[in-house]
Simulated assay, not measured.
Amino acid sequence: MLDPRGVTLQVARTVGGACPAAALSYPITVPVAVTVTRTDTGAVLASAKSLIFVAVK
C-alpha cells in the first residue's frame, strides 16, 4: 500500500489463536496484533495489540 507521499507501507496482521468449535467454549477473547512498516527503511510506523471478544449468538 502507498501513503500519500508514495512511500510503500506493509501491513502485518497476526491473530493469536483460533475460535474453538465447541459452543460451550464461548465467550472467549482472541489476541490480534497489527503492525505498519515502511518497506524502504524497515521502520515500524505504528503497531497495536488488542483482544477481540467472541461470543456465540
Rank of each mutant, 00 (worst) to 15 (best):
M1R: 06
D40S: 15
A12R: 14
Y26M: 06
V11E: 14
A55D: 12
L2S: 10
A43N: 04
V15G: 01
V32S: 00
V15K: 00
S47N: 05
L9R: 09
V34E: 14
T41F: 06
L45S: 04
R13H: 04
P4I: 11
K57C: 01
I52K: 09
P4N: 05
I28N: 02
V11S: 10
A22K: 10
V56L: 14
G17A: 03
L51M: 13
A33Q: 13
T35E: 13
I52G: 00
P31R: 05
R38K: 15
A23M: 07
G17M: 02
P4Q: 08
Y26W: 03
V34A: 10
S25M: 11
R5E: 15
A22E: 14
V36Q: 05
T8Y: 09
V54Y: 05
P4T: 09
T29Y: 10
G17N: 01
T29P: 00
T29Q: 13
A21E: 13
A12Y: 03
D3G: 08
K49M: 08
A48M: 07
R13T: 13
G42H: 10
K57H: 05
V30Q: 05
V56T: 12
G16Y: 07
P27F: 01
A21F: 03
P31Q: 06
A23Q: 10
T39I: 08
G42Q: 10
S25H: 07
A18P: 00
G16I: 03
L2C: 04
A55C: 04
G16D: 14
Y26H: 02
V32G: 00
A55K: 10
S50T: 11
A23K: 07
P20D: 01
T41P: 07
L51F: 02
F53G: 10
R5F: 13
K49L: 07
T8A: 15
V30H: 02
R13L: 14
G17L: 04
T37D: 04
V11C: 11
A48D: 12
A48F: 09
T8L: 15
V15P: 01
A46W: 11
A23W: 03
A48H: 12
V56R: 14
G17Q: 02
K49D: 08
L45K: 03
A18F: 04
Y26K: 00
R13K: 15
V44I: 15
A23H: 03
V44P: 02
S50G: 15
T41D: 08
G16Q: 11
L9T: 05
G16C: 06
T8M: 14
S50D: 11
G16P: 01
A22S: 15
A18I: 02
S25V: 01
V34W: 07
L24Y: 00
P27G: 02
L9S: 05
T37W: 03
D3C: 08
V36M: 12
A55S: 12
G16T: 04
